[in-house]
């Protein structure tokens, strides 16, 4: 397996494209996280809130995005992870997860991270600092 230390500034971790967002994905996340805000699971509630339909929890997308780093836990850990929720994620959207090395030194690798929808729009955008063990 490749090590995270080998990645150079400008290079990207392998992208991951998720299956189209389903209602079951969001019901599962509601149950696992305890966030039962009904705009994420019930159509009428989403419409009452002025939305065209249910939307994904921002934290669902943020949680998914972090998995790009999961294969590298033997080398370090996610020390700092920041995102801005820029745009809504709707049912059947196809989300692609991306991380590109921005800066690197002996102890940390700083990544630009993003979740992008099928129209090329960044729905979640931010930064992750991966701290390397000695």
């Amino acid at each position: 397996m490749t090590t995270i230390r080998e990645w150079q500034v400008g290079q990207s971790l392998p992208e991951v494209t998720l299956s189209p967002v389903s209602r079951l994905d969001l019901i599962k996340y509601a149950g696992a996280s305890g966030d039962y805000n009904p705009i994420h699971t019930i159509d009428e509630e989403a419409k009452k809130a002025g939305l065209p339909g249910i939307i994904a929890h921002g934290m669902w997308t943020m949680g998914n995005l972090a998995k790009l780093f999961t294969p590298y836990y033997e080398e370090g850990f996610v020390q700092d992870y920041f995102v801005r929720f820029q745009s809504m994620v709707f049912l059947n959207d196809i989300i692609t997860l991306k991380a590109t090395v921005k800066e690197k030194d002996d102890k940390t690798i700083r990544f630009a991270v993003a979740a992008v929808n099928q129209h090329g729009k960044e729905v979640v955008k931010g930064e992750a600092v991966f701290s390397l063990y000695e």
């Binding site: 809130a49 850990f77 996610v78 920041f82 995102v83 929720f85």
Partner: peptide
């Protein structure tokens, strides 16, 4: 109870 928007989120760790 309603209408809150989650704008940004940060996690900072000393260790996992």
């Amino acid at each position: 109870p309603k209408g809150l928007i989650h704008g940004e989120q940060r996690f900072r760790y000393e260790r996992p």
